[in-house]
């Protein structure tokens, strides 16, 4: 597996990370080194193995349908980089 600059650019855009053009080749090399190393996993026979996720042995607990949170507009807005009245504000989105 080998990541070219175009792929790195696409992944960076998917992750919304600005990467200056001149850093793409070096970053691609680093990522390639990591991916190459990761690829030893292909040696492992995983036929018939169920993937593990978290502590899969447990069943999920459920919460009761009670409103006990959320009436705190100032608290949720207090760290906002930009707010207008009781809204978060972002550059206008044209749909």
């Amino acid at each position: 597996m080998s990541l070219d600059a175009a792929t790195v650019r696409r992944i960076a855009s998917l992750a919304r990370l600005r990467v200056p053009e001149d850093q793409l080749p070096r970053l691609g090399q680093e990522l390639n080194a990591i991916l190459g190393w990761i690829e030893q996993l292909n040696e492992v026979n995983t036929g018939g193995v169920e993937p593990l996720t978290g502590s899969a042995a447990l069943a999920m607990r459920m919460r009761e349908d009670v409103v006990n949170d959320g009436a705190q507009p100032e608290a949720v807005l207090s760290n906002a980089p930009e707010r207008i009245d009781a809204f978060y504000a972002v550059p206008k989105v044209v749909e």
Partner: peptide
């Protein structure tokens, strides 16, 4: 909300 402000979209969660 895209129509409340000339340059901003406002977010209500």
């Amino acid at each position: 909300l895209h129509d409340q402000h000339p340059a901003k979209s406002l977010i209500d969660l």
